[in-house]
Simulated scan of single mutants.
Amino acid sequence: MKIAFYGSSLVSAYWNGAATYYRGLLRALAQKGYDITFYEPDVYDRQKNRDMDPPDWCRVVVYDGTVEALKAVTAQAAAADVVVKASGVGFEDDLLLAEVLRNARSDALKIFWDVDAPATLAEVRTAPDHPLRGALRELDLVLTYGGGDPVIDAYRAIGARDCIPIYNALDPQTHHPVAADRRFGADLGFLGNRLPDREARVEHFFLEPASRLPGQTFLLGGSGWQDKPMSANINYIGHVSTRDHNAFNVTPKAVLNISRASMAENGFSPATRVFEAAGAGGCLITDHWEGIELFLKPDEEVLVARDGQDVADILAGLTDERADDIGHAALQRVLGEHTYAHRAETVDALFKSHAEKREAAE
């Protein structure tokens, strides 16, 4: 089957949190025999900050940030058996969805793949005339990278024929244990860009515990924090390339996952960072969100904090030996149940099921 996938970026993770998800899942689908073309716009300086070359398992088409270029690439949807429009592409998203649907063949499987369902649904709820509402009548399926029953029910309520979560996972080829790197030495590391929907939680779960534990060292990576007030025991290192994520995750005694507010409130939304850290064998501390036990077992494979005081208390009592044990247990769990090969099995079955139903109806 040929897949035409219209997303934010495959070759750049710069201001693009979905990159790891796209890479892992599409690589796994390509290994199952799918012929994939990924279309991405040249916006937000992503092409200037590429962190990978175009892969041999997927054709990448970069188009100018113009309406004319958008229409030219969406015309190519007509050649695909499966047509995917992802959320948050970053250039004329509504027009892109409309053009993809206009050009897709009548027998093609048409999918909206939402990589930020809480944000999308919040936007749609406040706009009765939102273009996505009308598009759902033409779409065969909504896939999301998280959300559980709340997201499934919400999408069905606004007209989706079906909504199925395809959760983040681990790509063992890119995220795996490596040697420690002294550049990333710390008691606790956190990696994440400064976003309005996350900043208050970063203050609560990371900056405040750092100020309470002056004898411990903290490492902050990600873009946008340079003018943020922080205690002297925090080492801010700015943007961290994906090639250094394994070392970042395995070098500190523990690494911290802080969900964006909408993801934490919704639950069942493990970030890519969760699986990256576990895949490197790092000891992960995560903020609490409903559904964490579906992916990692609290206190054995992950440490869970409900507030900043919990983070401080966990760090104060965490030994190197226990951190190593938790990291090892998490690695074994994700390798056994939560790789993109596992996710691709689910997606492949969905694609084939829809194709069989369509053939039977003809």
Rank of each mutant, 00 (worst) to 15 (best):
K2H: 04
I3A: 05
Y14N: 14
Y14Q: 10
N16L: 06
G17M: 08
R23G: 10
G24R: 07
R27T: 10
I36H: 05
T37S: 09
F38E: 00
P41L: 04
P41V: 00
D42Y: 01
Q47S: 03
P54H: 09
P55R: 00
W57S: 07
W57T: 11
R59D: 03
R59F: 04
T66F: 07
A69F: 10
K71D: 14
A79L: 02
A80W: 02
V82F: 02
V83M: 11
G90F: 01
F91P: 12
A98F: 07
E99Q: 06
R102I: 06
N103H: 14
W113S: 12
V115E: 10
T120I: 03
L121E: 08
P128H: 02
P128V: 07
H130Q: 08
V142E: 08
L143F: 11
T144S: 13
G146Y: 05
D153V: 11
A160W: 01
P165F: 09
A169T: 03
A169Y: 06
H175G: 05
A179T: 07
D187Q: 03
R194Q: 00
F206T: 12
S211A: 15
Q216K: 15
G221F: 07
S223R: 15
W225K: 12
K228R: 15
A232P: 06
I234W: 06
I234C: 03
G238I: 06
G238Y: 12
H239M: 14
H239C: 06
F248E: 01
N249G: 02
P252A: 07
K253S: 00
S262L: 10
E265N: 14
T286M: 13
E300L: 08
D310H: 08
V311L: 01
H328F: 04
A330R: 00
V347N: 00
L350E: 04
E359K: 15
E359Q: 15
A360L: 13
E362F: 07
